[in-house]
């Protein structure tokens, strides 16, 4: 038995979601290899080799993988797939894009977004926006799995001494090509990696009012999120969205402001350690999951909170 984890990176840094995915790989119990596909990404391979528990790093450094498009990366993974019993990737937009393609190429039914490893072939995963948790057993020879990062504590990024092995390119696909990217630049922590998240909902009434939330976020070193209602209303961009169709977060502290608490939103944050809800409607469902609820007008409470911190 051995497990291949697909590293998520930007050609210079390893993304933290890879460390959570490695925790799931460790729970499977087999020896763990990491695949780094990119261009000029030796520094990522070096970082991978240093990660706790990684036995080997496969490095495919080639023009074909510069932007990690699904067609090229899936074909590369396919070229080594038969050496492994498990192939795992984080359930981020990267993993969700690439892994099902690989899965079909090797005729495997993927298991998406696992939250628990029960044995080498049996896993738990949420369905229906987290309203139910399914336990599924895979009868495929190779298990192809995406991992919900927030459900696993990351392994240590240090202490390992894996060997780095060069992997030949499987060739560039001409089916698609990269044009450009707009990555939101922010001094705040990334939503999925932040230990504190403060999110605004429809109750914020406008995008301009989000500055009330941002002030508090900056005092707490928190990331800023939003409900789907706030995104749909155009207050903030979609990459702020926390929920079933947005990002899944599980910080130490989650502060929901002006968010009613639709199932859709709860699916994205209910595993947070401490939840605070600020809402003027005392019957809002968000209070049913909040550890601390404050029934108040957010336009009064937020400035007070900013002052008190």
């Amino acid at each position: 038995m051995s497990t291949l984890v697909i590293a998520e990176h930007d050609n210079s840094n390893l993304k933290p979601s890879t460390l959570n995915t490695l925790a799931a790989a460790t729970a499977v119990g087999a020896s763990v290899h990491l695949l780094v596909a990119g261009k000029d990404c030796q520094s990522v391979a070096d970082a991978c080799a240093a990660v706790e528990g990684v036995e080997k790093v496969l490095l495919a450094d080639d023009d074909a993988y510069e932007n990690q498009l699904a067609e090229s990366v899936a074909t590369l993974i396919q070229s080594v797939a038969s050496n492994y019993t498990h192939i795992l990737a984080p359930a981020t937009t990267f993993g969700k894009n690439v892994l099902p393609r690989l899965s079909a190429l090797i005729d495997v039914q993927q298991i998406s977004e696992i939250t628990e490893v029960l044995s080498a072939d049996t896993f738990k995963r949420p369905i229906y926006a987290g309203s139910c948790i399914a336990t599924v057993k895979s009868n495929d020879a190779i298990k192809v799995i995406t991992v919900r990062a927030t459900a696993f504590d990351p392994v240590s990024a240090a202490g390992g001494s894996g060997a780095i092995e060069a992997l030949g390119s499987a060739g560039a696909s001409s089916l698609s090509s990269f044009v450009g990217e707009e990555i939101a630049k922010s001094d705040r922590p990334e939503l999925t990696a932040a230990s504190i998240v403060i999110s605004g909902g429809r109750g914020m009434q406008s995008g301009d009012n989000f500055h009330l939330i941002e002030t508090i976020a900056d005092k707490l070193g928190a990331a800023v999120g939003a409900s789907r209602a706030a995104v749909d209303a155009g207050f903030v961009p979609n990459d702020y969205q926390v929920g079933q169709t947005g990002k899944i977060v599980a910080p130490d502290l989650y502060i929901a402001v002006g968010i009613s608490g639709a199932i859709q939103h709860l699916a994205g944050m209910k595993d947070s350690k401490v939840i605070v809800a600020i809402n003027k409607d005392e019957d809002a469902p968000i209070f049913q999951v909040a550890d601390y609820g404050l029934v108040a007008d957010l336009f009064v409470a937020l400035p007070e909170l900013a002052e008190a911190l």
Binding site: L69, S174, L175, S176, S177, F178, V179, E181, D239, K247
Partner: peptide, 12 residues
């Protein structure tokens, strides 16, 4: 829509 922003690609 990708984590952290937007990516534009062309597909045949």
């Amino acid at each position: 829509e990708i984590d952290g922003g937007l990516q534009t690609i062309k597909v045949n």
